[in-house]
């Protein structure tokens, strides 16, 4: 038998999808950081996390990632997309880029994706649940309603989250997320 007829195959890369996931993670990361300074519920949840708690969310096995840490000040801070040199206590990874693309294009809600086993969580489960709740809230603020309903399990109605507060908070989160801090983070990570 001529084994050269069946060559070894080294699979390539999905550049576009990775770039897209990178952008989404950047925005969500900054959004979470901002939501922690704006939304009461997020503040409550963050208060329950231990100090110095660092978690990463990303796509296994080769990125992109987003890393967030709870600083001494008690606030969350988005640290960028590099994982080297950081002690990560909670590692939430989407199992492959294709699944990540589905989640980030809102074809599958985060909860559904979690139920479908797209996430592999390594670390303390209650903390992971807390982070997922934070992400849900961040998504509600960051995304327009029509998209956010696809991403979260229950989009809050008027009683749960009055529209006035929602839009005001949303504006603040956007301003904070795209403030000069963004460029600082980008610069530091390069």
């Amino acid at each position: 038998m001529n084994i050269d007829r069946y060559p070894e195959i080294r699979p390539g890369k999905k550049v576009f999808k990775k770039a897209y996931a990178f952008v989404v993670l950047l925005v969500v990361g900054r959004g979470i950081e901002a939501a922690d300074r704006v939304d009461g519920e997020v503040k409550d949840i963050v208060r329950g996390l231990p100090e110095g708690f660092t978690f990463s969310l990303g796509v296994a096995p080769s990125g992109p990632w987003m890393v967030i840490r709870k600083e001494k000040s008690g606030k969350l801070r988005y640290l960028g997309w590099r994982r080297f040199g950081k002690t990560i206590e909670l590692d939430m990874a989407i199992r492959n880029i294709e699944a990540a693309f589905r989640i980030f294009t809102f074809r599958e809600s985060t909860a559904q994706a979690h139920n479908n086993g797209r996430f592999s969580v390594n670390g303390n489960l209650p903390n992971a649940l807390a982070i997922m709740r934070i992400m849900d809230i961040a998504e509600i603020y960051l995304l327009p309603k029509i998209i956010a309903t696809l991403a979260v399990k229950r989009y809050p109605d008027r009683r749960e989250l009055p529209p006035g507060r929602k839009h005001f908070n949303r504006l603040r989160i956007y301003l904070r997320a795209f403030s000069p801090g963004l460029f600082r983070v980008v610069y530091r990570n390069l």
Partner: peptide
């Protein structure tokens, strides 16, 4: 099938067809 292996770090040892 190969495309499903993109970005996975796995090498396919061969396709015996």
């Amino acid at each position: 099938l190969i495309r499903a292996f993109y970005d996975s770090g796995c090498i396919i040892g061969g396709i015996y067809d």
